[in-house]
Design a protein around this nucleic acid. Sequence first.
DNA 1: TGTCTTAGTGTACCAAACACACTACCATTC
DNA 2: GAATGGTAGTGTGTTTGGTACACTAAGACA
Lengths: 229, 229
Amino acid sequence: MPYTYEHPHPAVTVDAVVFGCDDADLKVLLIQRDLPPFRHRWALPGGFVRLDESLEDAARRELHEETGITAPYLEQLYTFGQPRRDPRERVISVAYYALVKLSEHAVHATSDALNVAWFPVADLPSLAFDHEEILESALRRLKGKIRYEPIGFELLPGKFPLSELQRLYETILEQPLDKRNFRKKILGMGLLADTEEIQQDVAHRAARLYRFDEPAYRRLKKAGFNFEL
Amino acid sequence: MPYTYEHPHPAVTVDAVVFGCDDADLKVLLIQRDLPPFRHRWALPGGFVRLDESLEDAARRELHEETGITAPYLEQLYTFGQPRRDPRERVISVAYYALVKLSEHAVHATSDALNVAWFPVADLPSLAFDHEEILESALRRLKGKIRYEPIGFELLPGKFPLSELQRLYETILEQPLDKRNFRKKILGMGLLADTEEIQQDVAHRAARLYRFDEPAYRRLKKAGFNFEL
DNA sequence: TGTCTTAGTGTACCAAACACACTACCATTC
DNA sequence: GAATGGTAGTGTGTTTGGTACACTAAGACA
């Protein structure tokens, strides 16, 4: 059972900041801890890295184990390793951030967590460890990256009206965008395919639905195109 | 002497990609290993993180111990943690990149290293571990970041002619820039202060020397200015 | 049939990006 | 001291993309 080394080793964990978006808000997935330290506090999903798995695999595994979410867009964010960030022992945490289509992911609490829930980023509870710092860092990254990589689509359903895409950008960038300029620019890129479908069950004129044209993006990127909004 | 844990722990190291620039080239600082594994191979300076120091402190300490360099611009790059990247045991490496003024830093080998030397990034030896991957990643980051943060100045001496700054950008971005447009843009930002000095001992017309005006940059940044080249 | 709500569309102006070529200055050499 | 070689330094016109801005169209519902 015990593991012995000649030199001291820190523990290594992965934590994930999972973003989702619904009609109203940008949201983050949190779990409520069922074990000390910080028992009953909300925290980012995450856990210890096993010796035979890569960091990214560990992040995916923990995410699945604790929240039921699989295979999202996942990217390494930053590594947090201040000496006293965990009261138990020296723990170095490699943080990831993930983007998921909120509507397509039912979440459910599992063994290690008392509870799992989506929180609007504008209204968060106090978090365990240094997870508030990690979350802020993830938000900054998202805000920066969404402007020059087409990652916003990961947060939307497969088919979406342009107004929803615009609202997503406005929410994340925290600034209003002009409708005509937004449409002109995004449609001009040639990354959106018209699905020939329209919204259903809305109490007003129905909007066309578009989808992100991934192959077109890869083609354009190869040809030197740079996404920018 | 032995350290015992209930669960297996990986080892954690920091590695640093140190960039410098001389008249001709962008260069990287490497050490020649004096110990197995990869004995006699060139590698990035780095080493094990101590339990009572932060990751950044560890990077600075190792850099100083192995190469004599102190207090450079240092930023976390990425964390590399594939299970078999080190043949001895599971080692997770938090990589940093640093920018230094090459001319102002005499380097010297110390105990752990057989040798220390600057290599042009265009002409590198084969490296130990996955250090080639780390170095490529650092180059990508540098290339991306230098366009929207004024970090290029960290690589130049305190006083420099505009032509040297331009050559630095051309080297890192790997593309030629128009002299007039470059000067217009960079001078128009108001980040460069004229030192009222000129080059000495050159075999042609001497150029004015400028310095990066850090307080001006902070002021402008606060007012919403964004560096971009 | 009127009202409400969101979808969808075009143009004029301004600012920044880009392309482009010559003169000025200094040191060295003959 | 004249000529040469090498880098410093300078301005304009064109094009492109960013930004500001207001009305009509469609469909649901009362």
